[in-house]
């Protein structure tokens, strides 16, 4: 007896229509539809697509919880053993839908799930920690590669077999660290890796460095004498007492402080909350980290239009990149809403 698989697809891959049909409500069909015709043979007869759940991408986006609940109900009612969603490639709403239904089914039904997305699909960042995602190309041209990879992984999950190397290489990292046991200690492994590197041989790192994104440089400020300039710091300068309790390391938040009437950051009125450098000098004169005194002079001289009345601060000390990114996005949005033209960011 083969395992019973449910396949989730959108209106486009079901052949119902494109954007003009994106608001169609869910429909359940028996057997295969669209990409299921490629997926089913790849399951080798060990598993079979029993039902296909079709939903318009806009309908899904407007009814996420309700559609997820419908998928969960179908899994229980039809005694489904595994859910395959997509592949959704670089389709944003479809990818998010695939991630959401997989996450809901994994949580509520505790059965294996899989989807396949392009790395830049927004569904990846939303769901990569919760569900296994096969890396696909950006368009349906990559169907031929994504389908066997999804089939291989889901069959291993169903049969409770270990994933092989090629399965791991096509799955996106969940960003979870697992304790491992090795025969050689860390120093020995590091030296072995270095020797390989020196010889120009291939080696595999045990801890990848984060990849930072790049942004296009913004154009120059045309007329500084009319510009509103803001200041932001990762050096932890806060009003005395650190009212928002910004942590000395691994910051979980940032502070927003009105300093419209402050001409100079004075000792005992402002301090640093940063726990990663000697605080003596910053506490003695916080302008050494956030140059308010000088900027007030420059503002008075009319060389800048205005110093924005709020400054933003966090502690850049072992702070998670994901947190820093989130702080930066929020602060950037607030500054944009306040019509700030340029920002000086100081870092310790």
């Amino acid at each position: 007896m083969s395992y019973r698989v449910l396949h989730y697809i959108n209106q486009f891959f079901a052949g119902i229509g494109g954007e003009e049909k994106a608001d169609i409500s869910p429909e359940i069909r028996d057997g295969l539809v669209g990409p299921g015709q490629a997926l089913n043979p790849a399951l080798n007869g060990e598993a079979e697509i029993i039902k296909t759940f079709i939903c318009g991408d806009n309908y899904f986006a407007n009814n996420i919880d309700a559609v997820c609940a419908q998928v969960v109900a179908l899994v229980k009612e039809a005694k489904i053993d595994a859910l395959i969603a997509g592949p959704a490639f670089n389709a944003g709403r479809y990818g998010t839908a695939c991630g959401a239904v997989c996450a809901a089914v994994a949580k509520e039904c505790n059965i294996p799930v899989i989807t396949a997305l392009y790395p830049e699909n927004p569904g990846v960042d939303l769901y990569r920690k919760l569900i296994p995602i096969v890396e696909s190309s950006d368009s349906a041209r990559g169907m031929g590669k994504a389908v066997p990879a999804m089939a291989s992984v889901i069959l291993k999950f169903l049969k409770k077999e270990e994933l092989c190397k090629s399965d791991h290489s096509c799955l996106m990292e969940k960003g979870i660290r697992i304790n491992m046991f090795y025969d050689e200690n860390g120093a020995e492994r590091a030296v072995a890796m270095l020797v390989k590197k020196l010889k120009g041989e291939e080696f595999t790192t045990e801890y990848k460095m984060p990849v930072f994104d790049r942004v296009e440089p913004r154009p120059a400020v045309k007329d500084m004498s009319k510009a509103t300039i803001a200041i932001v710091t990762s050096g932890g300068i806060v009003p005395k007492g650190n009212p928002d309790h910004i942590a000395a390391s691994s910051a979980q938040n940032y502070g927003e402080y009105d300093f419209a009437n402050v001409k100079d950051l004075l000792q005992n009125e402002y301090i640093t909350a940063h726990g990663g450098y000697d605080q003596t000098y910053a506490n003695e004169d916080p302008d050494r980290v956030l140059p308010v005194d000088v900027l007030r002079d420059i503002e008075k001289e009319g060389k800048i239009g205005k110093l924005h009345n709020k400054f933003y601060t966090t502690v850049g000390n072992g702070t998670a990149v994901a947190n820093a990114l989130a702080f930066g996005k929020e602060i950037g949005q607030k500054l944009r809403d306040a019509n700030v033209q340029a920002v000086i960011l100081t870092s310790t």
Binding site: V215, A282, R288, V289, L290, T348
Partner: peptide, 21 residues
């Protein structure tokens, strides 16, 4: 540079980037 800043001004020292005691 590694985190992607586009306009970078080198400063004085970690505990006092914009000063010198």
């Amino acid at each position: 540079v590694s985190v992607g800043a586009n306009r970078i001004i080198p400063t004085v020292s970690i505990p006092y980037p914009l000063g010198n005691p």
